[in-house]
């Protein structure tokens, strides 16, 4: 074997090791990535499809990942872009936009309708099904940010990087998204009463 070909062989072997390492790290993050996938999808099936597309693309373009940077954020950037591309998003027209209430709207409504003053008991009136249903009703632009920050526990800066939007936009969408979520929940909780 010549010098150059053994050099070449070493390079290929190293590349394969790096790739396997990358794939293993990406798979180890799958549970966390799934949480976001489920949050931005309307059904479990949709979330599963989105996960497979995300991982297929991630494995194909592994070489564009810079080692030492945030792999979870990199994967979620692929996922949110795919979700936008696939047009899996709820159609939204301005008149379907839910009315927006203040930050304390939900608390105030629940408190006013129950006469209950203990915060924990007030929260008991909301079921997890209510929350999931209300979240699904939040328009997608707001929901993506909400899911990344509240469920994925990303900082504003990381969410901005993943969605490729300015940090100020993350903050305003989060702010409005939470208010819309609370409004939806208040309606569901009061209907159920």
């Amino acid at each position: 074997m010549s010098e150059t070909s053994s050099e070449e062989a070493r390079r290929i072997a190293q590349g394969a090791r790096d790739r396997v390492h990358f794939e293993e790290e990406a798979l180890a993050l799958a549970d966390q990535v799934y949480r976001v996938a489920r949050g931005v999808s309307r059904s479990k099936e949709e979330a599963e499809d989105l996960m497979q597309e995300t991982y297929a693309r991630a494995f194909r373009s592994w070489a564009s990942f810079t080692p030492g940077t945030n792999l979870r954020a990199w994967l979620l950037r692929i996922l949110t872009n795919l979700n936008i591309d696939r047009g899996r998003r709820q159609q939204r027209t301005p008149d379907q936009q839910p009315l927006e209430e203040g930050d304390y709207f939900l608390y105030n409504r629940l408190e006013a309708t129950s006469g209950e003053t203990d915060e924990e008991r007030i929260l008991d009136r909301l079921s997890q099904d209510h929350v999931a249903e209300a979240l699904a009703a939040v328009p997608h632009d707001f929901r993506d940010v909400l899911v990344l920050v509240d469920i994925g526990e990303f900082t504003y800066a990381e969410a901005a990087q993943i969605l490729d939007i300015p940090i100020g936009t993350v903050m305003s969408r989060l702010h409005r998204g939470r208010r819309i979520l609370k409004q939806q929940l208040a309606e569901l909780a009061l209907e159920a009463k």
């Binding site: 489920r38 949050g39 996960m51 999931a132 509240d150």
Partner: peptide, 18 residues
């Protein structure tokens, strides 16, 4: 207290293992 518990509820509501 309500807002902080509410966030926990939101986080738990959509956690569904893969």
């Amino acid at each position: 207290t309500f807002e902080s518990d509410f966030r926990r509820l939101v986080r738990q509501a959509v956690i569904e293992p893969m």
